[in-house]
Design a protein around this nucleic acid. Sequence first.
DNA 1: ACCTGAACACCGTTCAAGT
DNA 2: ACCTGAACACCGTTCAAGT
Lengths: 221, 221
Amino acid sequence: MIRRRLSRTDVVQAAITFIDDNGVQALTMRRLGAALGVEAMALYRHVPGREELISAAVGELIDDLFNDDLMQEKPSSWEGYFQFVANAMRKLALTHPKMFPLMITQPPDAPWLRPPLRSIRWVDYFLTSLKEYGFSDDRAVNAYKAFTSFLLGDLLLQVSALGVSPVPIAENSSDEQDNENLGDYPTVQRLQSKLAENHSAREFDDGLDDLIERLRTAMDS
Amino acid sequence: MIRRRLSRTDVVQAAITFIDDNGVQALTMRRLGAALGVEAMALYRHVPGREELISAAVGELIDDLFNDDLMQEKPSSWEGYFQFVANAMRKLALTHPKMFPLMITQPPDAPWLRPPLRSIRWVDYFLTSLKEYGFSDDRAVNAYKAFTSFLLGDLLLQVSALGVSPVPIAENSSDEQDNENLGDYPTVQRLQSKLAENHSAREFDDGLDDLIERLRTAMDS
DNA sequence: ACCTGAACACCGTTCAAGT
DNA sequence: ACCTGAACACCGTTCAAGT
């Protein structure tokens, strides 16, 4: 591959890919430089430092989602709109599971920008849309708050479940060892299969339906 | 202060205090050693490494909460029990805002251990309690899942709101600058005060009431 | 204008040595 | 048994130098 001159976008995109592949902790100016075929110090021409690079990577993902995808389409009902946004956010979280914790952990730019919906421009658009769907000011703000906390809770849980090593590496990997550990916890043991069942997609949709239902009755009242 | 010999507990507790005060990123083996009046290398006698120390700090907080507080008292109704647990968890999150993201970000030890309720022993106790309150197996598991995702979403939002610099430091701190930024976002601007209102305590309680109500109707059906 | 090389201060961690 | 000192490989970042 012939190396063009580096741009800020190149660096930020490379950081996203690197974090997706190796995790944040592995992201090093020297290693990212090497991945780009350049000395670490060249990165400082385009980005002020490591911390800011990570912020920029988060911002890039957010901006791509909200500018390129979410502002193009607008369903005819607010229920459909919520589902549209939720599914897009879910897809982003599952496509970049190593980035998602960063998206929600970095302090937001303003007190009323609630993760993971961290784009002022987009939040404005969202609230404006809710008004068009007939929400009052109070209902719109409440819906925004309820929606963010639903997304946060459900998506982080899904993402963190991905981080669990599927087969916990034990030096003594006989079944007996595992069962012995669980033996002290009879209810967990009995419900183990139910607890381990991963219906995250359905649970996400159900939770969203519940939320929508709650907001609907709140609107009618 | 006369220095006794160091114990593992001393090291872990010091790590918690250090993170509370300075954040994880500032936690350094050398600095933590200095805080304990000891060389960095002495810590390795008690803890395998930095990563494991942070895990141990998280585990310590969880264990303290669940063993010392949450297993002592058991309200007579399941609704009261949910409130009791939620309030204890909320208090922990707000007492250790810099630790909370670590509690929910570290991969859980088992697929059915959902953050922030990361104690097997305690989850077993929780599920057993729900059974005693009359929950079926399915309802108990559903309640556990809904409860964790509610706690996660709401508490992380509260904690991340704490991280926002209350007065964003701008070189040009005139009001005009701030308003110019917001000028492009009329709905956010108009709803700014409503959005910024911090009713987190009430919202938390309301959200919990909603959750309880949802679980109750699910039980009756 | 953009990248490199050398350098600085600071990491986590190992290991032999002290007491 | 517990802590120290020196050392190693690796960081982020600065700065003068190259092209």
